[in-house]
Structures are given as structure tokens and as C-alpha cells.
């Protein structure tokens, strides 16, 4: 198992390395000198050079790449061109919104999807199966930002149960923070829950058709006992893959949703950075999100090894 995970870790580290090169190269293509852009046309040469030095732009590109990567490894993401504050501090603040939001949505999606998928699979062809499948079909088709607008109208504007946007900060209180993330989390979770429920149902149905379920029935297990004792854990393997993927997509999807709810997360930050051409921020946030995707992929690999003994002894 250690070897299997070590190999996965190495391969993912390599992916990250190449990804960082790609991101750096793309951003470096941008024409124009950042320092002149920031200072405006009338700035004198001396100030410009000083600013270039301050931003670390006065060295060759390979050196800058190296500085960027080694800086990130030590938690130093550089200095924002616009705000002149360390990017790492900005990111840290914003992460406290984006990350909990993605986790919250993932939890919601799993909590909704598991029972729905299991009910649909065990009562295949029944009214509940057909309705669950119908709702999930619709859930996949609804754009989450549109769903968010509807949620805001109903629950914030009409019913006034939640505020329409903004984030009070965790220091106000955990539940106040959570409450302000509830509508966005639901908006994010709906399509993912629909997908997950479908995967759960189909994977469970596949597993229920396996030979070892028949063997379990021949031992005297009831259909229900066979489901809980044997089918569920086996059915979980493809479901894990999806959960892993979803976390990445929830992080990315949060970029859009944060804009609707005026949440001070990474998404809002990255759009402001694009408009202000604060490329170091764009560069770092994209790298961070790629890192999150890759890290979650690794966690899913670990989960596989825990669930499936066949992987534990493999190479």
C-alpha cells in the first residue's frame, strides 16, 4: 500500500510541477510591462525600475519561475501588484470562505445523494425511483448560478430566512458564518448531488447483479442484509471517484457562486485580479486551485486503498 501511494504521490507531484510551468508560461505571454501598467504612462524611469525590483521582475524568466515556485513552497506567494500586500495573506483570508463553502456543499451533496441513490436502486422501477431519477435529470440540467438566483429570490427576498449575500466573517460566530454559506452551498450542491445520486444508484445496481451477492443470498442473507453487508461497500468504489472529482469542481464552481452572493472568497478575488491585471494573484490562485484538485485526487487514491484490499498488496 505504501508503495502504491508513493507512486501515486510521485506522479501527482510531477503533474503539479508541469502545471506550474504551464501556468507560468501562459501568464508570461502577456504583453506589456507590469510596472509601467501599474504606474501609468507618466511615471519616471527610476520609479519604474524600483518597482520592478520590489516586485521581483528585474531578473530573467527562469529565475523568476524558480523564485515563484520556491516562494510558494515556503508560503510566500509574492506581492500583489494592485494592493501591494503579500498575496499569501490575501489568499489565506479568502480561503477561509471558499474552502468551507466547497466542503459544506460536498457534505450536502453526499447527504442528499446517498439516501436518494440507495432508495432508487433498491426500489428500482418504483414510483420513488422514477421520481428521484426525474429530479436528478433536472438537477443536472439547471445551471447552478441560475438556481442560486432563484434561491436568493425565494429564501432571501421573499421569505427573508437568509441574507441575500455577504459574509459576516467567522469571528461573528460559527453558525452565523455557516448560515450565510447555506444558500450558496445548496446552489453548488444541487447538480453535484444529482450526479452523485445517479452514480450511486447505477453502481449499486451493478453490484447487486454480481455473483457474490448471489453467494451471499445462498448463505441465507436476506436481500436487505446482502445490500448492507456486501453490496454497499463494493458500490462505493466508483462513487469515491466522483466525490473526488466533485470537490475540485465545487472549488471551481464556487468561483462563480461567490460572485452572486458577494462572498469574499477566492472567486471574487480572481475576477477582481483579472480586471486589475494583477497577474501574480491570478497566477497564484490558479496554482492553488490546481494544487487542491491534485491533492484531492491523492486523497481519493488513499481512500481506494482503504476500501479495496486488492490495492493494498499491489505493487
Amino acid at each position: 500500500m505504501i508503495r502504491y501511494l508513493a507512486r501515486r504521490l510521485l506522479s501527482l507531484a510531477l503533474t503539479l510541477l508541469v502545471a506550474s510551468v504551464v501556468i507560468f508560461l501562459i501568464i508570461e505571454v502577456v504583453p506589456g510591462d507590469t510596472a509601467s501598467l501599474m504606474l501609468g504612462v507618466n511615471a519616471d524611469e527610476e520609479t519604474r525600475l524600483a518597482l520592478r525590483e520590489e516586485l521581483g521582475l528585474d531578473v530573467s524568466k527562469p529565475v523568476r519561475y524558480f523564485n515563484w515556485v520556491s516562494g510558494m513552497l515556503t508560503g510566500d506567494f509574492g506581492i500583489s501588484y494592485t494592493y501591494r500586500t503579500p498575496v499569501s495573506e490575501m489568499i489565506a483570508d479568502r480561503m477561509m470562505v471558499s474552502f468551507p463553502l466547497a466542503l459544506y456543499a460536498l457534505a450536502l451533496s453526499t447527504l442528499i445523494a446517498f439516501p436518494a441513490g440507495i432508495i432508487a436502486a433498491t426500489k428500482r422501477g418504483s414510483f420513488s425511483d422514477v421520481s428521484i431519477m426525474g429530479v436528478t435529470q433536472l438537477g443536472v440540467a439547471i445551471p447552478n448560478f441560475w438556481f442560486a438566483m432563484i434561491l436568493v429570490t425565494i429564501f432571501a427576498i421573499k421569505l427573508r430566512w437568509f441574507s441575500a449575500g455577504g459574509f459576516p466573517g467567522w469571528e461573528v460566530g460559527f453558525f452565523a458564518g455557516l448560515k450565510s454559506l447555506t444558500l450558496p452551498a445548496f446552489a453548488l450542491a444541487l447538480p453535484q448531488a444529482s450526479i452523485l445520486a445517479r452514480v450511486m444508484r447505477s453502481s449499486l445496481l451493478d453490484t447487486l447483479g454480481e455473483d457474490f451477492i448471489r453467494t451471499a443470498r445462498a448463505k441465507g442473507l436476506s436481500a436487505r442484509q446482502a445490500l448492507w453487508g456486501h453490496a454497499l461497500r463494493n458500490a462505493l468504489i466508483p462513487v469515491l471517484t466522483i466525490i473526488g472529482l466533485q470537490f475540485s469542481f465545487l472549488l471551481a464552481g464556487a468561483i462563480i457562486i461567490e460572485n452572486i452572493f458577494f462572498l469574499p472568497g477566492l472567486g471574487r478575488m480572481i475576477f477582481q485580479a483579472i480586471t486589475q491585471r494583477d497577474l501574480i494573484v491570478v497566477e497564484s490562485v490558479v496554482m492553488l486551485l490546481v494544487f487542491a484538485v491534485v491533492a484531492v485526487t491523492f486523497l481519493v487514491d488513499v481512500a481506494y486503498a482503504v476500501v479495496d484490499p486488492r490495492l493494498r498488496r499491489r505493487v
Binding site: A19, I26, I27, A252, G253, I274, L289, V293, V294, T297
Partner: peptide, 22 residues
């Protein structure tokens, strides 16, 4: 296959953000 893995690490929105930034 490794090239595929690399692209998969970038959700479409991130690719769009990178391209738009440039």
C-alpha cells in the same frame, strides 16, 4: 496519458480564466 492527467488538473473555468487573463 500523463498529458491528459495534466489537463484534468485544470477545471474548464480555470483554463478560461488563464486564457482571459492573457
Amino acid at each position: 496519458m500523463r498529458g491528459n492527467d495534466l489537463i484534468f488538473a485544470f477545471p474548464a473555468l480555470l483554463i478560461a480564466i488563464l486564457i482571459t487573463a492573457v
